[in-house]
Amino acid sequence: MPASSFREGAREGFRAFLPLSVGLIPWALVTGMAMISTGFTPAQAMGMNVIVFAGTAQLGTLPLIGIGAPLWLIVVTALALNLRFVIFSAAVAQGFRGIGTPTRWFAGHLLTDGVFACCLEKMLKVEDPRWRLGYYLAPSVWSWLLWQSFALIGVFAAGSIPKHWSLEFMATIALLMLLVPLARQRPMLVAALSSGATAIALRGMPLRLGLIVAIVVGILAGFAAEHWHAKGEAQ
């Protein structure tokens, strides 16, 4: 196995993820500003940013911290917001075959929605574990750097970026750019449509549990569509 396969994988992973990573920037800026408006000092804000490293969990728990909610409620909310990562972790786990446990912890800590969606397919297909590790870690470390840098800018820019610029819409566009190529396959499209409709129908559920139900419904719908599709081909 060539020693450079890690770097080859890293280069390819970085190239695949770079355009999508732009979506992290508004999230990081918004999160940095939100932590300051919750009343954190810059040191506390960056402390949370480094320890947690998760936009959804950070933005989701800030209002609770702000009103002095009990610690257990804050932690349960964070867990609910992060349940999707159990699904992602299980889906990508096979991509870490042949890789040691400490590295797996490091990789697990860095798992994000964008990197998962971008890297999953090749992580499962490619044989060379060094190539796979590079392909996963390059976008992950890049995400970490972007997240910390732009949250820091957000922390210090809090108050001077006009809210009506709606920078957070760039994050929505980034998520869509991940979704569009996936949805070209019929069962994936079915999964996305069912999940999206369920999420809208259940938007009133507490702790964003509707999101988790929607993901499960989408997975089941996609799986069912795959079976019907296969049956249709066989006949």
Binding site: R84, A192, L193
Partner: peptide
């Protein structure tokens, strides 16, 4: 199907 479902 998890990524497509979660993104949607």
């Amino acid at each position: 199907y998890a990524p497509a479902a979660a993104l949607a």
